[in-house]
């Protein structure tokens, strides 16, 4: 019991760091929260709504995302897209990620 709990915690920690990178990488085009959730899930990354929405707000507050409300099918939707600042940061994050992956692959091989 305690073992699965600590496994869950470690997995959660691992994923938490990855989600920011995943979100930034998928927002080159406009997406609203729910469509982004499905986009991530279609590619195999399941993210909880309770994680994604506050994260989007935080990234916007940090200036990495921009958002705009649009009325669609009589439903207002908040569309998010990566900002200029986010675009500058993304390649650096990608490089960082590649470094981590190669180091960890060697370590775990």
């Amino acid at each position: 019991m305690a073992n699965t709990e600590s496994l869950d915690n470690v997995v959660l920690e691992l994923r938490r760091g990855v989600i920011v990178l995943a979100v930034l990488s998928q927002l080159n085009g406009e997406q609203y929260g729910y469509s982004l959730l499905k986009l991530l899930s279609d590619q195999g990354l399941e993210v909880d709504q309770g994680t994604l929405y506050p994260l989007l707000r935080r990234l916007e507050a940090q200036g990495l995302l921009e958002s705009v409300w649009k009325l669609e099918e009589a439903r207002p939707r908040r569309y998010y897209v990566i900002s200029a600042e986010g675009k500058k940061l993304l390649p650096k994050l990608k490089k960082e990620w590649a470094g981590i992956v190669s180091v960890m692959n060697k370590m775990l091989a």
Partner: peptide, 12 residues
């Protein structure tokens, strides 16, 4: 904003 976004998500 949060309320509006939540409502639209739930409706979707």
């Amino acid at each position: 904003d949060i309320e509006k976004e939540l409502r639209s998500t739930l409706e979707d």
